[in-house]
Design a binder for these strands. Structure first.
Lengths: 133, 133
DNA sequence: GTTTATGCAAATTCTTTGCAATACT
DNA sequence: AGTATTGCAAAGAATTTGCATAAAC
């Protein structure tokens, strides 16, 4: 169904996804949702719920350095759909494996003459503050 | 076979891959190689040749904003394997669809306290200089 | 009652593995 | 001759599609 004309209803799966993301405070892959839900939710349902939430602007996709897709609940992203911006940094810790948004890091990138930026995605892998003691 | 002990031989597929990348001057996906080779080369062979070249350090993987994997021939990357670094910018033009390395752009990213960087990948999509007139 | 959300089966696509044949050195 | 490369078949993983049932409004 078309995104525009569709009327959404209460969906247990979508609620579970949002709640899990709030609890874990990290971006998760489709497989991880499946595992956390103990396979009680059909994978197709998870695929569809994730797509729905991305379309709605509640989640966004994060691509990790290996090309794997994770879904994140970004504070700054969830509010205003129009100014929905991704030029912040996604950090993936090699130790605890958590992927998070570094909301406050806003890098400056000077492009050569005549290049125009539409979207930026920055992926950093390394050790996060919690694992680095 | 192990990367270390292997002795490489002349490979038509690998040559074709390198030549195509030099000609196109853009990062390509596995599928694009297949198409450009008119399916004359088996896809498995392409997979293996690409892996080989990445291991050898001749190519590197670029993950695009949708999670698709492309293979690029970066000037700065091809030479010294040890200093092989990816913290430069990959630019993907929305008009001509070419993905290129902006070799000279070296952004400064200040991470919060106690974060340690191992690898950075920066993807920018927009309009490239050639399309922007 | 109508439309959305879900589950199951199956189709499709992407990638990897095994093995025999071929080609390079 | 010995080993790396290639092609083919097939296995395996990831994702999508179709349709019937269940749930929301």
């Amino acid at each position: 169904m078309d995104k525009k004309t569709r009327k959404s209803r209460k969906s247990l799966t979508r609620e579970k996804i949002i709640n899990l993301l709030k609890e874990k405070k990290t971006a998760l892959t489709h497989k991880e949702f499946q595992d956390f839900f103990n396979n009680e939710v059909d994978r197709v349902t998870i695929y569809r719920a994730l797509d729905f939430l991305v379309e709605e602007g509640k989640l966004h996709k994060v691509v990790n350095l290996e090309g794997g897709i994770q879904y994140a609940l970004c504070q700054t992203c969830t509010h205003e759909k129009e100014t929905h911006s991704h030029n912040h940094v996604h950090f993936s810790c090699l130790k605890c494996n958590k992927t998070t948004c570094l909301e406050n890091v806003t890098p400056e990138i000077k492009l050569p003459k005549n290049f125009e930026t539409t979207d930026i995605q920055i992926l950093i892998s390394g050790i996060c503050d919690k694992c680095n003691e």
